[in-house]
Design a protein around this nucleic acid. Sequence first.
DNA 1: GCGGACTGCTTACCT
DNA 2: ACAGGTAAGCAGTCCGCG
Length: 893
Amino acid sequence: MVQKHLTEFSHPKIKPSKENEVKALPLKQTVVKQKKQEAFPPVAPENLPPSYFVSATYDGKTRKALIKLYEPTSGQIYFWYDNTEHKPYCLTNLSPYELEKINCLIQHPGFDHFEIVEKIDPLLDRKVKVTKVIAKDPLAIGGRPRGCIRDIIPEEFPKVSESPISSEQIKVWESKIKYYQSYIYDRNLWPGMIYEVKDGNLVPKSLEDAEEMTKRILGNFKDATSEEKQHIEQWARLLEYPAPKLRRVALDIEVCSPIPTRMPDPRESAYPVVCVSLYSSDGEKRVLILKRQNTREGTERLPADVNLEYFDSEEKLIRAVFDVLWNCPFIITFNGDDFDLRYMAQRAQNLGFGRKDIPIEVGRRVCSLKYGLHIDLYRFFFNRSIQIYAFNNQYKDKKLDDIGKALIEMEKIKVEKSIGELTYTELAKYCLRDAEITFKLTSFEDDLVLKLILVLSRISSMPMEDVSRQGVSRWIRNFMHREHRRKNMLIPNAADILAVKGKTATKAIIKGKKYKGAIVVEPVPGIHFNVAVMDFPSLYPSIIKVWNLGYQSIQCPHAECRSNRVPDTPHWICSKKRALESLLIGSLRDLRVQWYKPKSKDKNLQTKLRNWYSIIQGAVKVILNASYGVFGAESFDLYCPPVAEATAAIGRHSITQIINKTKDLGIQVLYGDTDSVFLKNPSKKQIQKLAQWTELKLKMSLDVDKVYRYAVFSSRKKNYLGVLEDGSVDVKGLTGKKRHIPLLIKKGFNAMKERLAQIETPADFEKAKKDICEIVRNRYLQLKRRDWENLSELAFNVVLGEAPEHYKKITPQHVKAARMLQERGMEIKAGDLIRFVKVVKDPHVKPVELATKSEIDVEKYIAHLRSTFDQVLDALGLDFDEIIGLTKLERFM
DNA sequence: GCGGACTGCTTACCT
DNA sequence: ACAGGTAAGCAGTCCGCG
């Protein structure tokens, strides 16, 4: 039951307070009224209209799970507290009788009671009886450094037992699952979906349209097993329910620090917050400025719809910002976890704010909000899977400026001066732009980013905040955990999986890796016309599905399955029971390939729906792309290296079978990598035969992915250039496209690429070759003449993988340059992009900022030019030295 | 003391 | 904290060299 004092319902304000606003009259004194603290928390009424489950947490005060519901009509957050008496627990193989002997367990202040439950042990493939140890609060199970129930059981029982039992035989399960996640699984709740509160109870809201659509989608999967259909339906329902408009404010703060090159420390917050911008989804743009001595107003003009608000004290300014944080359901920042929110919370404390007046909960890594949700976009865009698969590597730098440029074509405002030297209006403009970019990163393409987070939250059964901060292995783990609970399966401990089925048997090509990976076919060097690229759509997820791979099914306990072998390995696969991974990943794959992918391109659908489908297929793609890798990742809770090894082995087996078949069919394979084969001038019939054979023999589809008008291969793997029918050019792996090479060389490479795009027939080559020679020669002469506009055209751009001090074994060139910058007082950290040029004098490198034109080592650059072009030139039958006009004798010298 | 062969480190890429 | 495979460039080491 909800406690009485919580049921008194109060209405938080819809809009941020405007009491403090003064429009556009900067120097006029502002009177800030002290705003009364709203009643908190905003408890959901006995009956709440349909609202989205956006977050969940554990409330220490009430000792209950707390669900944050977002009601889209009012744009409010409501708190719903558990009313089912659900309690935290863990499981153990000791009986209650044995457990009762452990005094410090029974007397533990957090201990509640025991229950005996029956579960399926997936490693043994049979039912087992285990004891549920139920606690009063989650910290009693685990979470404190000492004296937790999960540690007490294996540590103390051997001491109290008459027949000594080794502590390895004593097992504790499910003790490391976050309490609110456990609650979500047990109550069968679906984060991201729609709920109502009826008579105080949380009940799912069913939408007719979405349910109908789910049934329709299911109709497309007639061949699936009933188990598969069940999961396809479950996934489809999660993906078909609509997404709400999320009311939000993007926030950015500026701090005036005496050392402009250093980021102010948010754990000290020693310097004043001088400006805060708030850019909101209802169109409101506010800039809150602290009045300071010796600061001029400035001449910049801000757009008419921007509210400039001046404050005569920092405390009043922060209070005005906190008003927004107490009332807005979604706060968007860029690096707010580590800076903006952390800084303000500490600053408020320094200024003497009470704990209750600060709307921010500061954690070790995260800053969350007491009222709404904090989404830190830096954390989301930093996620490699998101960067690569959701945004196709469009941004590389993970800085606001770079991401803004790449995704919404909006840059930060460049300022030369430090924050303290800016005029009020310069500062306002600069700060507002950051908030604007931050906001627009959530609004572009019909709120793509927030919808992506929502969809991922549904798939993984995690709160939106967690999804936006954690990696793909957590998303996958959580939906696996959910399904274990739904099927009454014990969630195994990582150590137990590893002990029973940990060993790999193949030898990796790369030193230090755990097992052998994919095959790369030696390319046939030269120029080839009409090249068809065929590939397996999501090969590894298909293998996991078709071959029933999972930690349960590999090396299963049944003797009769031992003959069901994985090619090229000693592993066998269960033929009696479907593995959860196979079922979940397989059904998700089928749904993407057969429904969401085609629908996202279907011109018959309305744009809005098509966009939604394209977001869904993108979210699912991110998950599928990682679904094999996680099994080989030690950090994954269901880590099972033989599963990853088997997947790769079957991949090698599959592509090898295809290559053998092309020989039967008389098709020449020019190249192939992992899941693809490049076929030289194949006939329609040959392609069809190969596809049919694959479907029949391998139970997987093989599609024509693209057709190159012509492709250029050198003898290097993962290095080629292909011109598509429409004249667009695919460049893969060539140095000319790598991000670290100097612009001057890249420009030459791109000119060559454009020229190659114009070639239609073999006959066109002769003329193109001449033009390409010209391009190369011009760049060569440009270097020889030292004729470049700007030194930055010669800069190599290399990311510092670690902090400069970290390099102990060797000192690479970019680290040398980074250290030179450090000596000049620059702050250099891991992840920074170092720009350096090559010079004649000793360490042979210099940061571009410190170098001059005359010291450039031109011969070095010519060597780079040569190696960049050589990758293409030898296929064209051209020679770099001949092009630049060296005679045979000169070349020899 | 120097240069070439070799190994290992680092980054950026491909699937 | 998803995996392994490949290319390139350079740093550092070892060895031969009367």
